[in-house]
């Protein structure tokens, strides 16, 4: 069975979510719940590390779309890092790189948050 896991850690005021496995309509609510908890706690600097993500469908992309406006209105952002080419292709096909910060690695995302 294709599983999905989210693990959280903090670096300064940045909240890093490592996502692992398969993100689809079945597992997207798990990620949604984790981001909702951060938003509820007023944590608006969110970095999502995709290095261990094997698959994403539009339900996964929809999670980011659902939060981004509120987070940016609170002077925060969701930055996305460490995507493999297969995952990036899905984001790219839908024009996400124009609207979201998609960076090569965590450090690039952290630098962007701090600048």
């Amino acid at each position: 069975m294709d599983s999905f896991e989210v693990t959280k850690r903090e670096q300064g005021n940045i909240n890093i979510l490592n996502i692992k496995g398969y993100l689809d309509a079945h597992t997207a609510p798990q990620l949604e719940e984790e981001i909702q908890k951060l938003v509820d706690d007023g944590k608006y600097h969110i970095l999502v590390n995709f290095s261990e993500l094997a698959y994403i469908s539009s339900a996964g992309l929809g999670v980011f779309m659902g939060f981004i406006e509120n987070i940016r209105n609170n002077n925060g952002d969701i930055k996305l890092s460490n995507m493999n080419p297969k995952i990036y292709r899905v984001f790219d096909l839908l024009g996400f790189p124009e609207l979201y910060d998609i960076v090569e690695n965590e450090q690039d995302a952290i630098d962007k948050f701090n600048n």
Binding site: S57, S58, A59, L61, G62, M65, L93, L94, G95
Partner: peptide, 18 residues
Amino acid sequence: NVQDYVSSGKKGGLGIFI
């Protein structure tokens, strides 16, 4: 236009574009 749609902040509906 997919980009207009994505930037509109709607949560679903991307499946058909994909």
